[in-house]
Simulated scan of single mutants.
Amino acid sequence: MIIEEQIEENLIYKVIHRVKVNYQKKIDRYILYKKSRWICNLLLMLLYAYRIQDIGGFYIVTYIYCVYQLQLLIDYFTPLGLPPVNLEDEEEDDDQFQNDFAELPTTLSNKNELNDKEYRPLLRTTSEFKAWQKSVFSVIFSYLCTYIPLWNIPVYWPFLFCYFFIIVGMSIRKYIKHMKKYGYTILDFTKKK
């Protein structure tokens, strides 16, 4: 009995491992095609928007999808090593919390005196490829949720629409405050030519 369970667990582990390896092989093929990936993502978003418009429902799913996309965008433009933007207001008075995170470098160290003119862009919290991957998964998941009638909760969509833009405004304000506090801009991520 115990041996059969171990064999079954081992078989499940091998199948899961094989699926992960095959998935990684397939996804690694697309890493070089940045524009094509984002165009494909845009087409999936348009397909989702058409489905929502066609069936006339699932506004809660769409709202959650849009909030998730907003969070992905904020993570994409936040430098690595800083506290998350959403924790900024909650922990503002706690000096111990602020000391736990590294600050952005303002000067080069003595080791890099030879490379004074070298420009190094900031590293992102979420890489472009991971942001694309999460965005594709979220739009596919949202699209699949539209086939489950349980998720079609009746709601007056103009309220959700207005509430979403209030959240966008508050998030942008919080993000600008975060950028001023830690001294970075969105342009710091781009390469100088």
Rank of each mutant, 00 (worst) to 15 (best):
M1Q: 10
E5N: 11
I7L: 08
E9K: 13
E9Q: 13
N10K: 14
H17Q: 11
K20H: 09
Y23K: 01
I27Y: 00
R29Y: 06
Y30V: 04
L32N: 14
S36N: 10
I39D: 08
C40T: 15
L42S: 12
L42A: 08
L43E: 02
M45R: 02
L47G: 13
A49E: 02
R51Y: 00
I52R: 03
D54P: 03
I55S: 02
G57R: 02
Y59E: 05
I60E: 06
V61F: 00
T62S: 12
Y65H: 09
C66M: 12
V67M: 09
Y68T: 15
Y68W: 07
Y68L: 05
L70W: 09
Q71F: 09
I74K: 13
D75P: 02
F77V: 10
F77Q: 12
P79T: 09
L80V: 14
G81W: 02
L82A: 07
P83K: 04
Q96S: 13
Q96G: 04
Q98S: 08
N99Q: 11
A102N: 14
E103S: 14
T106F: 00
L108S: 10
N110A: 04
K111G: 05
L114P: 14
L114Y: 01
D116L: 00
R120D: 11
P121E: 01
R124C: 00
T125G: 01
T125Q: 08
S127R: 03
E128I: 07
F129P: 01
A131T: 15
Q133K: 06
V139R: 10
V139C: 07
I140F: 14
I140K: 15
S142Y: 06
C145E: 06
T146D: 06
Y147Q: 11
I148Q: 05
P154W: 00
V155Y: 01
W157F: 04
P158M: 01
C162F: 10
I166S: 04
I166W: 04
I166Y: 06
I167Q: 10
V168R: 00
V168C: 06
S171C: 04
I172E: 02
I172C: 00
K174F: 03
Y175A: 07
I176P: 07
K177N: 14
K180R: 13
Y182D: 11
G183R: 14
G183T: 09
G183W: 02
Y184S: 12
L187M: 08
K191V: 14
K192I: 11
